[in-house]
Design a protein around this nucleic acid. Sequence first.
RNA 1: GCCGAUGUAGCUCAGUUGGUCAGAGCAGCUGAUUUGUAAUCAGCUGGCCGGGGGUUCGAAUCCCUCCAUCGGCUCCA
Length: 645
Amino acid sequence: MINITLPDKSVREFESGVTGYEIARNISEGLARNVLSITVNGEVWDIDRPIREDARIKLNTWEDRDGKATMWHSSAHLMAAAIEELYPGTKFGIGPDVENGFYYDIDLGEESISSKDFPKIEEKMLEIARRKERFVRSEVPKSEALDFYSEKGDEYKVDLINDLEDGTISFYKSGNFTDLCRGPHLVDTSPIKAVKLLNTAGAYWRGDESRKQLTRVYGITFPKQKMLKEYLEMLEEAKKRDHRKIGKELELFAFSNKVGQGLPLWLPKGAELRENLEKFLKRVQRQAGYKPVITPHIGNKNLYVTSGHYEKYGEDSFQPISTPSEGEEFFLKPMNCPHHCEIFKTKQYSYKDLPVRLAEFGTVYRYEQSGELHGLTRVRGFTQDDAHIFCRPDQVKEEFIAVIDIVLLIFKALDFTDYSVQISLRDPDSMEKYIGTEENWEKAEQAIIEATEEKGLTAEIVTGEAAFYGPKLDFMVKDALGRKWQLGTIQVDYNLPERFELEYIGSDNQKHRPVMIHRAPFGSMERFVAVMIEHYAGNFPLWLAPDQAIILPISEKYENYAKKVLHLLNNYEIRTLIDERNEKTGKKIRDAETRKIPYMLIVGEKEESDGTVSVRKHGQGDLGTHSIESFVKIIEDEVNKFIKQ
RNA sequence: GCCGAUGUAGCUCAGUUGGUCAGAGCAGCUGAUUUGUAAUCAGCUGGCCGGGGGUUCGAAUCCCUCCAUCGGCUCCA
């Protein structure tokens, strides 16, 4: 007998060799019907695989991440089986489950698949699923596995097997499709009731740009048709939040081919929104001891040779512009730090003067690959809410923590609760990518990890993601469609102070090298605003909204009164406009609602004679009649709630 | 940059197998209406069908090419 510990810590005894399915049945018939996989001592297994020793287990159903993963992984096999039937000779790469569904990378040779082919593949998948094909696990020696795929002519699988350790290799067979696979899988294909292929994409074999590009087919499956329907509806809803769509609808920003791709044009309302954010951060930074600086948009090539950026990016960035007579070369600035280093150098500092914190909303230009550009989230010209902190080595952690506090303050003010934190360190396998001494890297990485721990942040540590000059701490959020973007970033840098020979005079009257911290709590204004648009779906909080109130006169007879109200509100710095069109009130309200303007002020005969406004709140409706003073109070209270929290 | 898809008025989209196929709604303009909490009515103006080249008697429609956008991959100081 063996002891099986369930997630609630209760222990049940079973015969050795019991399977997940049997345990589920022992608990309830319902669970047995729904169980998709079992986690045994932290490892996910097939539910028909015998358990022979004491174990902690968890039964995974559709409600569990691991249950979905099992289903989707099996669905990848199912899709591969369907594709193999429909397109004989297809070679298969890898086919994992992903956050929302699964994909399979395939090589169709001369054939190609596009979304037009999806229905027939989906149909074939459902047909196979209904056959209730069992996923049969088998283990064979490595040599036999190699033979199998060499014979089949699938070089991708051969490549994969060659990378595996010697010994036995597991296969899963379902119907006619056999796949190299670690598992786990469903018992059979029958739980897969609804199938939807989502899109195709090119994907380099093993993620390597120099290798062949395969066709990646993305799909998702569900145990119930209704769930698929809900998922597709959810996707539709998410698309409505897309900042590119809302940005157009609310006239926030635009792009023009004439200006150039990836170069955003901030329209008046978008600029208003952005300025409100900038004002907010400027106030926070002033309180935190930052000094504003302003630097030009271009910098001499020598600046970047000194900083090391030229060596790293010179060829892969916008090429230099040069002066007509002297032929001196200048780069559009791709970052602000070198300029700020030169500002630091204009003056001699005592250790008592540090930290020096130089802040600038600095616009930078980077050559991003054309296929990478994406609305406001990935552009070629953008403004960083940049600052560089020059401090003594003993101040690094304290300063780092103070920056984390600013980021968290911003996230709180904007109601961003769904973010993740990532610490990016060097890739120990390719140290040649980085500049700076081993000792400095070591110190910097340590400082970040300690500061993060001290703030109690749960951070994911990712090696190989560091900038070439130093490790970093990034704050990431997801957009409406689940894509992950980096917003705030904090980076420790021992390298630039070295290269720019920055110094301060210590208490020992000797010259010392300061440490630099790069930080941008928003990251870039463009990307931050993009994410914010999606976060609020365009319904911005009052303090940020480009227009805060719109006056809707019932008819042109009340236009004079409307103008009077407008002037009063403008005096209180409430961003107000009037809808003077010759339209019915219902129409004006509808349009104001569509424009997501927070407050509508309806004025007619009654309001004019009483000196009041009839207040309607966006998304809520009629708030009744208020005096101007009372309305101003409503606005001020709502704004202050954010600013003074 | 790579793979695939898309590109028709300011916006959202129709346009069957190449032949009155250059359309609709919204927006805009004109006029009527003087309007009370999510669309008043009527008329009118908008397009070199992404750019360029080709096939054809004839191209929004077929082919080539460039550009841009979208979905991924790769990249991201």
